[in-house]
Design a binder for these strands. Structure first.
Lengths: 153, 153
DNA sequence: GGTGAATAGTTTAACAGTTTAACTAATATT
DNA sequence: AATATTAGTTAAACTGTTAAACTATTCACC
């Protein structure tokens, strides 16, 4: 690839990804139910989609210290959205699950976000958006590999 | 478009964008100089690229209240990275500029981030990445319009 | 089988970022 | 001239974050 073209692509990518992230985040904020923060929403969502979720897994997934997770989980547990259950075989481990209240909250937000994303996605033609998501997923894979290499060092 | 396909695309998009954001952010964190936070980095970057930057403009661009910007700018000004200058014609307005120290810091990070993004981008072929960025920019445009409609309500 | 290392999670202190509301100072409106 | 609007700051309260020290449990292995 030509050097100049690469430089231009880099600039465009850096700029557009910042832009889209900011705006998408602010749109999602608008869809979230009842005073949940965006981080709390993502934590709840992750717990729902994970089979046996632990604090360590969350810390790994969100790339923060475990104590940051403890703080968030405490707030959500205080509000009755999350429940903690000790593993009977390994009593160090605490499994996190959503309460019914937590599930309901997530469900409402999930539907709203889906509608929002749908209203955006359908403005593209199918080939374009499919290609886009395919490349996006390749990018995710590359980033995962880079992170793993970084860990391995 | 078929309903099922749309649903699948939505799920994939929501999932992959979360994934890429988390990982990209953590990679960028690793490139930032001297204890700047990622928000501080983006603020400095924005000030550099804007002609006559004010707190109000930053608050708009980052979608937060002006008082949040004041707090960040205070910290950066205390460290001598940013300077404030009052507008002589409208003395309510304060222009924000980078000090030499601030510019140097940004430059170093900028180079590192560029190298990082370059090492990623060059793993794709030119057509694919160009198409990807084109679509990404369309998406940015759609989100901008949605935000503007929201404001207009 | 007991000792030391590793693991899961919590606590605490300190700080960054955020919102809301009240405020100051300057400019615009009428 | 009086009133409203605008730019920015301050203060209080909260969320998210790290680093370091801690508890409780399990693992390794001699």
């Amino acid at each position: 690839m030509d050097k100049k073209i690469i430089q231009e692509l880099i600039d465009r990518y850096v700029s557009v990804s910042f832009d889209v992230n900011k705006k998408a985040e602010s749109l999602i904020k608008g869809q979230i139910e009842e005073d949940l923060t965006i981080d709390q929403h993502y934590i709840i969502k992750y717990i729902q989609n994970s089979k046996e979720c632990t604090s360590s897994e969350l810390a790994e997934a969100f790339d923060v210290n475990k104590s940051a997770i403890t703080a968030i989980i405490n707030r959500l547990a205080d509000r009755g959205l999350i429940e903690r259950t000790r593993d009977e075989n390994d009593r160090r481990v605490v499994y996190l699950t959503l309460s019914d209240k937590g599930k309901q909250l997530l469900q409402k937000t999930h539907e709203k976000v889906h509608l929002l994303v749908e209203s955006i996605i359908t403005q593209f033609d199918e080939t374009e958006i499919t290609n886009f998501i395919n490349t996006y997923e390749k990018l995710a894979l590359i980033l995962t590999n880079m992170k793993m290499e970084e860990m391995g060092e």
